[in-house]
Amino acid sequence: MTKVIYPVIGRQTSLPFYLTGIGISDPEYHVTRDKGLVSHQLLFTSGGEGRLIVGGEEFVQTKGSAFYLPPSVPHEYYPSNGNWITNWIVFRGEFAGQMLANLGFDSFRFSPEINTQKPAQLFERIFVAAADPVNCGEKTSALVYEYILAMRTAMLFPDSRNNVGSITRQALLYIDSRYMEDITAETLAGLSGVSVQHFCRVFKAETSMRPLEYIAKRRISQAKSLLLNTDSDIGDIGKQVGYEDRNYFSIVFKKLEGVSPREYRRSRGTGL
């Protein structure tokens, strides 16, 4: 049975993301949009089979497949083998396009198989929130963003669906317990007995960061906590997280956070 909600659009247009529609199409029907949609669309197949045509290319839709369509992208889709059941949301936002591009959804995306467990759970929560005629805008905005992140993980980083592999996992555990030490890529690769080149390639594929980049971010994450929750001298905090040179600590901190350690501490109202 098809279930669809199109919220009344009002004050939610000022939000970063706002829901314009959500539905379970059972069965999905033949859709042709020569000029695409005005909204962004995320859709995953929960049963049956369909076909999606974008840019003259055909994509088979089966249970667990998913796609993202930006606005104004011409497309066509239709059931191809009995019933085709889809779960879809459409949404907008003044800066949604740029935010989605920054998250990796800079163009049409298709994944033949994803883990739909997390997206399906969030989809149900959005559906319930969308039924509130008064507060659906605020309620669904946060959930839509969470849903986008879940679909991002499922579609763009499929290897992380069930946690990272053993090579990266061992390295992350080692870094988290010894980030204040001088850690090299050679040391991390040696944990799994693989070459440095292979380790770095796997680590970046599974975390989207180079090993030394992750170490720096882990150190600065701890430094931020110390800046806000202690009255320790900034130079001492730098040493605690692995930077003997106060100036270098400040350079790394500002590069990652956009402000100096002192400015970060002051901006959070501690006055320490």
Score class of each variant (00 low, 15 high):
residue 14 S to L: 11
residue 200 C to W: 00
residue 139 K to Q: 11
residue 188 L to M: 15
residue 86 T to I: 05
residue 158 P to T: 12
residue 237 I to D: 08
residue 75 H to M: 12
residue 202 V to G: 02
residue 48 G to R: 08
residue 91 F to H: 01
residue 74 P to I: 06
residue 263 E to L: 08
residue 164 V to C: 13
residue 202 V to M: 10
residue 249 F to C: 05
residue 166 S to M: 04
residue 142 A to N: 08
residue 269 G to I: 03
residue 11 R to T: 13
residue 40 H to W: 02
residue 66 A to K: 00
residue 229 N to V: 03
residue 63 K to R: 13
residue 80 S to G: 13
residue 6 Y to G: 04
residue 37 L to I: 04
residue 51 R to L: 13
residue 47 G to Y: 02
residue 161 R to A: 14
residue 26 D to Q: 07
residue 18 Y to A: 09
residue 266 R to N: 11
residue 107 S to E: 15
residue 121 Q to D: 14
residue 27 P to Q: 04
residue 101 A to W: 06
residue 14 S to E: 15
residue 171 A to W: 03
residue 75 H to N: 13
residue 88 W to R: 12
residue 157 F to D: 12
residue 243 Y to E: 03
residue 20 T to R: 09
residue 224 K to I: 02
residue 237 I to T: 10
residue 142 A to E: 09
residue 93 G to N: 08
residue 209 M to F: 14
residue 50 G to W: 00
residue 29 Y to R: 14
residue 159 D to R: 11
residue 251 I to H: 08
residue 202 V to R: 12
residue 219 R to N: 10
residue 93 G to Y: 03
residue 112 P to V: 03
residue 138 E to V: 04
residue 215 I to V: 15
residue 266 R to F: 03
residue 6 Y to D: 08
residue 124 E to K: 10
residue 253 F to W: 03
residue 218 R to C: 05
residue 268 R to H: 13
residue 168 T to K: 00
residue 127 F to H: 05
residue 133 P to H: 11
residue 47 G to Q: 01
residue 198 H to K: 09
residue 266 R to S: 09
residue 140 T to H: 02
residue 171 A to M: 10
residue 243 Y to I: 01
residue 14 S to W: 07
residue 171 A to D: 14
residue 144 V to W: 03
residue 35 K to E: 15
residue 251 I to P: 01
residue 203 F to M: 06
residue 226 L to M: 11
residue 147 Y to W: 09
residue 10 G to N: 15
residue 91 F to Y: 07
residue 120 A to Q: 10
residue 20 T to E: 12
residue 258 G to R: 02
residue 29 Y to N: 13
residue 115 N to W: 02
residue 250 S to Q: 12
residue 48 G to D: 12
residue 92 R to I: 06
residue 186 E to G: 10
residue 264 Y to N: 04
residue 80 S to Y: 02
residue 31 V to P: 02
residue 247 N to S: 11
residue 84 W to I: 03
residue 79 P to Y: 03
residue 242 G to K: 00
residue 219 R to L: 05
residue 140 T to V: 05
residue 18 Y to R: 08
residue 93 G to V: 06
residue 202 V to T: 15
residue 201 R to L: 09
residue 238 G to E: 06
residue 196 V to R: 15
residue 32 T to R: 13
residue 220 I to T: 07
residue 166 S to C: 01
residue 203 F to G: 00
residue 156 L to Q: 06
residue 54 V to E: 04
residue 175 I to Q: 09
residue 39 S to A: 14
residue 42 L to M: 15
residue 133 P to F: 09
residue 82 G to P: 15
residue 211 P to C: 03
residue 42 L to E: 07
residue 120 A to G: 05
residue 1 M to W: 05
residue 120 A to L: 08
residue 38 V to R: 11
